[in-house]
Write a protein that binds this DNA or RNA. Structure first.
Lengths: 217, 217
DNA sequence: CCCTCAATCCCACAAAAGGGGGAGGCAGCC
DNA sequence: GGCTGCCTCCCCCTTTTGTGGGATTGAGGG
């Protein structure tokens, strides 16, 4: 039952707007090397069909009637189906970007993406890349940069204290830290007390949270 | 003192290999809209000159004699100079990628990047994007996805145990956890023992690392 | 009814961590 | 020469954790 050339990248579409959906389907089938193997108006019907589709790439809208595209991505990942998911949406707010990536999306394109770049994005994700609209990529990258409230406090730490804190946050015991730095256990304790003073914390876990910038508490 | 057209993107290069450095300089000056305003063989001399360069984009090698490109990026960010930093290196290991991004890099390109895409990357980062080689982008995106080895172990935890683990990972003491859950201290201890058993860890920090999916150790 | 399991609590002991104090050596600075 | 900051180590003590054994209740299933 071959309807399409076998080597083409099998693309599925989940998009509730009929016009957009058909436009995408048309674009994909009109692109050499790409084949649209399914187009769905909601996440539920897509998930129901996902198994037999054997799609390589899924273009997923986020704002769908019923289940959201993000939840759909999560479900798809939970299944055995190893599709590459590219979110295709009008929203570019941090919340949805990071939720999507956590849910397993490999790419994130805005609907303003020109057709040629959309096609390029599909081949890119299939090649092992992660297509993202420019502004999206910047936000993703920016998320790695510590907002630096911690850097201020951490800036007061001496070199040695930083070393100790680093090891401390990795879970090493005092004696293990002492061994690694080749100093005495009491010295480690002194450093740690000074670190706690400067960071205004009272335990290893709190210090780790501050060090890693994770505002856990 | 205008040596170059004023509207060109001012690009600085930090790269210890002379041949590569000159090649990059040549490429940039030969690209319309780009101007190489400085090329340095080490981080120190670049940082010393950074103020007067007024570069918009810095192409930064990582493996340099003396200070590493990552440290240089950190320093540059610490200065007031608001240059956009694009790492350009042969290394693509996770450690260096994420350290670079944390240090403030806005892009990460491998040296295998073709000249045309390199030029494109410079304009992209100047436009507000974050150029990354395909494999790099995928790693960055993948870092958001909980590797889910933890989910498997975590799946065995009971509802109560999850609650305790969550509080435990936030640094609360046993008695504080007990108070919040309105149970006895001994019960908390029992839960924690069971959690440690199931997660196969022996300390709070290890449990936290597994819970947060952060492979700290 | 018996069994399992989650959830609760208890005792005891050892190891680790946290908090107070003090102190010496050494480098750099005024 | 004094002063300061960093690194180093020591004492004593309390609190918190980790580990070993238990036990009881209640819900749910075979």
């Amino acid at each position: 039952m071959l309807e399409k050339p076998d080597r083409a990248i099998r693309v599925a579409i989940v998009e509730d707007n009929t016009g957009v959906r058909e436009g995408l389907s048309f674009l994909i089938d009109g692109s050499p090397g790409l084949s649209c193997v399914g187009a769905f108006g909601d996440a539920e019907s897509f998930l129901a069909a996902a198994d037999r589709l054997r799609s390589n790439v899924v273009l997923m809208d986020i704002d769908l009637p019923g289940m959201s595209g993000i939840d759909a991505a999560r479900r798809l990942k939970a299944q055995q189906t190893p599709s590459l998911i590219v979110m295709l949406t009008v929203y570019g707010d941090d919340e949805q970007i990071f939720e999507s990536l956590r849910a397993g999306a490999c790419g994130y394109l805005l609907k303003t993406t020109p057709p040629a770049q959309l096609v390029d994005g599909i081949t890119t994700v299939y090649r092992g890349g992660s297509p993202m609209s420019e502004a999206i990529a910047r936000r993703v990258v920016a998320s790695f940069q510590r907002p630096t409230p911690k850097d201020l406090a951490l800036a007061d730490l001496t070199r040695r204290e930083r070393e100790v804190l680093d090891l401390l946050s990795r879970g090493f015991r005092y004696r293990e830290i002492a061994a690694q730095l080749d100093i005495g256990l009491e010295t480690v304790r002194t450093h740690i007390r000074n670190i706690y003073d400067k960071l205004e914390v009272r335990s290893r876990t709190e210090a780790t949270a501050k060090y890693l910038g994770g505002d856990l508490v």
